[in-house]
């Protein structure tokens, strides 16, 4: 069994070895030229220019508000008044124009109902897309990137075995 001293890592030697590995991978092209600069530039740009704040928009809450506003109907128009006798006046006017009010409400309802259903369908589609992106597309993309990286490593290894610059 190794003693404590024998088991002590030689950090300086290890760092020198790591530096040599980095240099070899750079020379072989495994690490593309400008890799660090590209990363630094990318983050520097984000930090300098910031990120536009994401405005939280709860589409489901808005749809619920929309649903609560339907169906439209004369009964939802208040007939109360703060003025003495005002309620009676409102009731008389409401009865007088009931046919026209109903007609307008029916037209608006005919527009609002399909509009609400369309927005609901769109929201569901967006949510479905988001799930697909998160659960399928990104992992698939990641798998492709991993396979590409593995292929590049294999190619570099083969070049190294053949006495290439990665050796």
């Amino acid at each position: 069994m190794a003693s404590d001293e024998q088991d002590r890592p030689d950090i300086d030697a290890l760092v020198a070895e790591l530096r040599a590995r980095v240099a070899a991978r750079r020379a072989s092209g495994e690490y593309p030229p400008g890799l660090e600069e590209d990363l630094e530039t990318r983050f520097g740009h984000l930090r300098r220019h910031g990120v536009s704040p994401a405005r939280p928009f709860d589409v489901r809450a808005q749809l619920a508000r929309m649903a609560a506003a339907l169906p439209l109907g004369r009964a939802r128009i208040p007939l109360t008044s703060i003025r003495p006798g005002g309620a009676a006046v409102h009731q008389i006017v409401a009865r007088a124009v009931a046919r026209q009010t109903e007609g307008i409400l029916q037209q608006v309802q005919a527009f609002a109902q399909p509009a609400r259903e369309s927005i609901e369908a769109l929201a569901e589609a967006v949510e479905r897309l988001d799930r697909t992106l998160r659960d399928e597309v990104i992992p698939a993309l990641d798998a492709v990137i991993e396979r590409q990286a593995a292929a590049e490593r294999q190619a570099t290894g083969a070049a190294g075995a053949a006495g290439g610059p990665g050796d």
């Binding site: 990363l39 990318r42 983050f43 984000l46 930090r47 910031g50 993309l141």
Partner: peptide, 15 residues
């Protein structure tokens, strides 16, 4: 944090 999150997403580092 938002800048870091954006950087993470740009690099596709979802793990």
């Amino acid at each position: 944090r938002q800048v870091l999150e954006s950087y993470r997403l740009q690099l596709n580092l979802h793990r």
